[in-house]
Amino acid sequence: MHSSISSFSLPACLKAVAAAAATVAMVWVVVPNHMPSDTVLPLSVEATNEFVVEQYANAYREKPVVIVGSSITTMIPHPDCVPDNVITLPLQGRSGLTGLEAILRTGTHPEVVFVEVSTLLTAVDEVLIKEVFTPFYWQLRSLIRPLQYNRNWVVLLYQTKIAESAPFNHVIEFPSKTLDQWNLEHAAQFVAGLREARNDEAIRIVTPDIISRVRALQRQGTRVIFFDPIDPRIRNQSPNKDLRAILKTELPDVPMVDAPDDTVSIYRHDGFHLDSSSGLQFFNYLMNYAGVPFTPKCQLIPSPKTNN
């Protein structure tokens, strides 16, 4: 583009600023607070995680109950089944440590925070935290809704179209197979997880990070509860066994809630990631354990199949 202006023009600048402000104000009026579906877009890992954390920081940081973890937490419960008083921060390829850091950065004081244990060996994603919590700018984005990533019009368009094309009926069904049949079919996916490996160095490095963040939350009155949804066989071998032992020693006041495999059928895809029905079951179990009241958003249709 060519210009007829060769020097700085204050009136032109003021016109531009006015046009920008008017556009933002108009969009602010039009953009809804929430969409029919606030689920995450199928993006790259980094973008998805950024979306999750930013959405938490901007829109949902006042929720009293927070569940932090890795992709394993994605189905605890299904994103469309999360009750109104709960928010989950499932970060792909990351761990609950990044979620804990995000809570601390927002400066909010949730009543209860559930922390997924099995992936805690993964350190805080500093790049993600830096990206979302740009000083000053993230607070500005919190105040002005149109500036938020989850209110980006591309995201809004996408979510609207998803909601139109695949309305969620809030019913979660058990798999039609028995647990034994299921596990047999998924046996190949379990192999990697069942391979025992020691990782003492990572545990030594990450433990102080976990302790400091848990203690920081506790100091502000938050109840912290560890939860472990993975297959009991994987849970009871290194490095999970070692990490759990250290956490029990260093943080004896923090309860550790394991998936109730001994009382209900828990379906996993690979020893780590729960099927949506099992995720919802485990979520209900966690809420009951913590005594957190909630209004269920989804109905669980019990399976007629049993192992017997």
């Binding site: 007829s4 032109a12 920008a20 790259s44």
Partner: peptide, 24 residues
């Protein structure tokens, strides 16, 4: 073009602020 340029640029600035994807 020269009359509307400031308004167009202001509008584009607003769109950049509001519609940016994840920074890559």
């Amino acid at each position: 073009v020269s009359t509307t340029r400031p308004y167009v640029l202001g509008f584009l600035c607003a769109v950049i602020l509001m519609a940016s994807g994840s920074r890559h």
